[in-house]
Structure formats: C-alpha cells, structure tokens
C-alpha cells in the first residue's frame, strides 16, 4: 500500500518535472527559432480566428443568463439597479477567463494535441530533429507565445459580448433602464478586477496550451495505447486535464489575489 502510494507519488513528481522541462524547452526554443513571427501568426489564427464563433456564442448566452438570473435575484431585494455590477463583476472576475479558456481548449487545444500526436506518429517530429530544427521551437513556442496574447484578447471579447448579452436580457427584455445598467457596469469594475482577469487569462493560456502540446508531442509514450488510439487517448487526456487545471488554478489565483 505504502509502496503503491510512494511509486505513484514519484511517478507524478517525475511527470511534473518532465512537463516543466518541456515548457522551459518550448520557451527557450523561441530564441533559436527562425521565421517565428510567421508561425505565431498561424497560431493566432488557430487560437484566435478559429475560436471566434464559439467565444461569441458562449459569451452572448452567458451574458443573457447572467442578466436573467441576476435580475430575478436582485429584484427580490429591490436592487435591479445593480444588475450591471453583478453581470460585469461575474464576467470579469470569473466567468470570462474560465469559460473563454475552456472554449479555446475545446476548439484549439484539442486540435493542437491531435495534430502534434499525428506528427509524432508519422515521425514528422523526429524528422524535424534530424534536420537540425528544434521541434519545440518550431511547433510549440509559437503557440505558447500566441496564447499569452490571444487568451486575454478572447477573454476581453467574451466580457464585452457578455455585457451586451446581460443588457439584452436585463434592459431590453426585463426593463432595467439601460443607463442604469451601463453606469453600474462602469462603477463596479475596477482596475484590480481587470488585472485579475488578464492574469488569469494569460495563465490559463500558457498552462492549457502547454498541456495540450505536451500530450500531443508525447503521444508515442502513451501508456495505454499505441498508434491512432494513442493520439485519441492523448487528445482526450489533454483536454480533460486542461479543463481541470483551468478550474483548479482559477480557484488558486482567486484566493491568492482577493
């Protein structure tokens, strides 16, 4: 029993160490990489443009629901005027960074893990290395660098569209005065909230894209399957673990910054 726990703990620690080295190698790879800007633009496209629809859709519905729920809760206390504050703070401090990250993981992270897994399987990654091309620098660095920018941008967009959704359900449907809604938004959100929002978004970006890259890159070392099944298992694991990490780290950052 003790042996099993000990072995699993050691396993976990060595895995974490390996993951940390992977991330370090990927950031360091950016320094030697050639034509990096072009690769970053492509990563922007993957994480930005391709994820835009899902961010917009989830953002508007989140705002709509927040507006509805917030209105019913607040109207019990006769303080519908605070609806803007409730919607904006919920979005900025929690919902937008978390949901945007989860959506990008679902769209771009899974694609990334599968792509790297297939590239590993068909020896493309090995081929890069034998050509003297740093596979971290070529495949992972641009995506990590893009994530630092794209996740906060997507989050900001999520907030904006969510606020709009909140005003749709709160003002247009339920009759809260738009002026009151927007001025409550304006008064509620402070610089510290925005900073927390962006810190969260960038952290989630680096963590989730690293995790998805790591699992795809190491698909050949999947312990439960080989070949195509290893790619699918690695992709699944990457998405599940990324999602858990987003929620856990969200809690950690919130408790740390509040």
């Amino acid at each position: 029993m003790v042996g099993v726990i000990g072995r699993n703990t050691l396993d976990l620690v060595s895995r974490l160490g390996e993951f940390a080295m992977f991330v370090v190698a990927s950031f360091r790879g950016a320094m030697g990489a050639r034509r990096l800007p072009r690769r970053i633009v492509r990563a922007f496209y993957e994480q930005g443009a391709l994820c835009l629809p899902v961010i917009l859709i989830v953002g508007i519905f989140t705002g709509l629901v927040l507006g509805l729920q917030g209105y019913y809760v607040l109207s019990r206390f006769g303080s519908e005027g605070l609806l803007g504050a409730l919607v904006s703070l919920s979005l900025v401090r929690e919902m937008a960074p978390v949901l945007a990250a989860l959506m990008i993981v679902g769209q771009a992270g899974s694609a990334l893990a599968a792509e790297l897994g297939i590239q590993r399987n068909s020896e493309q990654i090995v081929a890069l290395e034998t050509m003297g091309i740093d596979s971290h620098g070529y495949l992972v660095s641009p995506r990590l660098l893009a994530a630092i920018i794209v996740f906060p941008l997507q989050t900001a967009l999520f907030v904006a569209i969510g606020l709009y959704g909140g005003s749709l359900s709160g003002s247009v449907l339920l009759g809260v005065d738009p002026g009151i809604y927007w001025s409550a938004v304006d008064r509620a959100v402070e610089m510290a909230d925005v900073r927390e929002c962006f810190i969260k978004a960038a952290t989630f970006g680096v963590l989730t894209i690293s995790i998805c890259s790591y699992y795809g890159y190491n698909a050949h070392r999947c312990s439960t399957a080989t070949g195509a099944q290893a790619v699918s298992a690695s992709t699944t694991r990457a998405v599940v673990l990324s999602s858990i990490v987003v929620l856990a780290v969200d809690y950690a950052i919130t408790s740390f910054l509040v």
Binding site: A33, R34, R35, E115, Q119, S122, E123, Q124, V126, A127, M131, G132, I133, Y138
Partner: peptide, 23 residues
C-alpha cells in the same frame, strides 16, 4: 526515413523548403 516522414500539412515545395527556411 523508411516512412518518408513528410510534413503532410505542407505542400511538396514547402516540404523541401522547410529545412532551408529553418536552418
């Protein structure tokens, strides 16, 4: 490579150009 290990999301020309571009 025995398996060729071509980059399947690049065109033929880009495949051949890649080692030159990157090194």
């Amino acid at each position: 490579f025995q398996s060729n290990a071509l980059f399947d999301s690049l065109t033929a020309l880009e495949n051949v150009a890649l080692p030159l571009e990157q090194t």
